[in-house]
Design a protein around this nucleic acid. Structure first.
Lengths: 346, 346
DNA sequence: CGATCGGCTTGGATCGATCCAGACCGCTGG
DNA sequence: CCAGCGGTCTGGATCGATCCAAGCCGATCG
């Protein structure tokens, strides 16, 4: 009555399977499967026996087999956009960290992939068709997000970090940070310190994010009855642009403080101040956006708006879980409030 | 003679399978499989017919099934170490980018996971046992690398970014950057500019990497017959430590230049200079290490040693491929030379 | 003209976990 | 005495790609 040994029981390196555990515990495969996936279906003593066998053999379910059967991989895919130097990359990296961390707690792992060139859909298709990932996290939604529409058309589950700016009837879950609230916070902080002439350095008008952040600044000023005319400049997101814009504004509008759309631009302001022998924080206040590494280590410290990326990740993962649990899940948007990290520059 | 339709052919959302392609092309499954994996086994016209069917149906092989059968996942795992602020994180993020990019070309994807706490093995075990990844990339090898020994014992394929500092007979492939060569490059650069009193600010003596980088500085000085005594300081890797150390060195040793083990420390030096009204690059030269975002945007620009992370990634992936192709692959070490990015601070 | 050979093709088995239907167990309550 | 209970067991099918051994076919050679 002895069982014919499975081929693999002769090959030492191969991991134990469900059947091995079943045999050891003296139960059927089904029972072991239940012990792993629906423990409450088993009687206590049987469960204990099976678990013991699992520990003894060091059994871990084979993912490939499980994935095949259940049509789920417990992986979420995220595309790493091409490396462009700038604080945007740093923010994304921080987000990736948070996402990896949060996903783990939800039983998911993060699969990174890269798009070849400018085509933002590159890479998504293969992963989706080959059932390599259960869902995507989409991050660069600012480019008229073709991913969002494309993914929606293919009925691919995904959650976006970033609002569907240009698409009002978008029906997918997203999480974003309220940039306007951040710059408003920054501006009020400066107003409270007695500044009345507060300048804005932001991005070009066609940037949704830039205009959003700008609106927080202007709202805060208008609330106090202060004018914004002549106090704003819109440029590229580079240090030298920030430097030039701030030099121009200092000459023309004579502000006592700057609010910037990014730490990069704020660094440009610091350059100008250094060139003119002005001291940030003492002579002129400066506030950046993103609370990057740079803001933390630069000389007197750069006050900066900090995005709550950990919370964003938590919210994204939660949406992901809802989405995967109920395919009919209707997308919701969630806007999170940033905070202000005050340092020497203000 | 009509075939019984598969259940799933009634469910629209399910992707086409090998069998569907086979039926469409009028061949067997095996032939389709060969068309995908060993195209040269097929006659030209058959191949063309199958490929046509593949395109028409939009067929993409199911990963789970393939993984199950071939016992390979084409995923490499990499642990994201807990987020500690500092330039080390930035370097790793740059490396992750490069790795993702390079892996893709080799047909691999990168699976990120996170370790819970201080236990560096956390997470590895599950992924390995469940055959979720084919191999690992290990990055933090400086802590007496328990991962390396642990992984080796379990015969898990892995490649390290970082030398096995404390383990001479380590037999695993690794890739690292020659830190000493980097600081030597930096020091020679300063010597060439006429500096003769060049100070070192590095990490505590028990840091292998720190001592390695320090050796490049001292070697360059000794080669020119210059003394290093009293010109070195070893501290924690923080801005304030760098600030204090440089203040002390300026008072005691009066150097005209600093070489630092990190950009963070170099930023500390810049703080000291700012406090004393000294101009980096004009009065005192400063060189950092890692060529981080910070070095690029800080006021006159920080000259810094740049690690060739793209090359590292390429070498790592190449090792990975060798390793997975031939399980008996004997590890090799590869040391890459960094470069110097010269900016305003020197 | 038939035997042989190489190139293709074929059906069936396999990977390991899960799903499913049906049967079993000793026990209780009607 | 039988139906029903919950916990389990059993065998078989399934997911989709790949492996394997056998079979087929036309072409070449003696």
């Amino acid at each position: 009555m002895e069982r014919v040994p499975r081929i693999h029981s002769r090959i030492p390196a191969v991991a134990p399977t469900l059947a091995d555990v079943a045999e050891r515990a003296g139960v059927s495969r089904q029972t072991v499967s239940n012990a792993v996936n629906n423990p409450d279906l088993l009687r206590e003593d049987t469960l204990a026996r099976v678990q013991e066998a699992i520990v003894e053999l060091g059994y871990v379910p084979n993912r490939a087999a499980r994935n095949l059967r259940t049509r789920a991989s417990h992986l979420v895919g995220m595309r790493l956009s091409p490396l462009i130097d700038g604080t945007a990359t740093a923010v994304m990296d921080r987000f990736v960290h948070s996402l990896v961390w949060t996903s783990r707690e939800a039983g998911y792992h993060v699969l990174l992939f890269s798009g070849e060139g400018p085509d933002p859909l590159e890479g998504y298709d293969d992963l989706l068709r080959s059932t390599a990932v259960d869902a995507f996290v989409v991050t660069d939604t600012y480019l008229g997000n073709p991913q969002a529409t494309w993914l929606r058309e293919r009925r691919a589950p995904f959650v976006a970090f970033g609002r569907p700016w240009d698409d009002d009837d978008a029906r997918h879950p997203w999480v974003d940070v309220d940039g306007a609230a951040g710059t408003e916070l920054a501006t009020r902080h400066l107003l409270d310190r007695g500044h009345t002439k507060i300048a804005w350095i932001g991005w070009r008008k066609d940037s949704f994010i830039g205009e959003d952040r700008r609106s927080g600044w202007s709202r805060a000023l208008r609330d106090r009855g202060l004018s914004t005319t002549g106090m704003a400049s819109r440029v590229e997101d580079t240090v030298s642009s920030g430097r030039e814009a701030s030099a121009w504004l200092l000459d023309e509008a004579r502000p006592s403080a700057f609010v910037c759309a990014s730490d990069t631009l704020a660094m440009g302001v610091l350059h100008t101040l250094a060139e003119r022998g002005l001291h940030p924080g003492r002579d002129i206040a400066v506030v950046g956006f993103d609370d990057s590494q740079v803001a933390q280590v630069v000389h007197p410290g750069l006050t900066s708006v900090r995005q709550p990326l950990e919370e964003v990740a938590v919210a994204v993962v939660r949406s992901l879980e809802d989405l995967l649990a109920t395919p009919s899940y209707v997308g919701e948007g969630l806007l999170l409030a940033p905070s202000l990290t005050v340092r020497g520059s203000s």
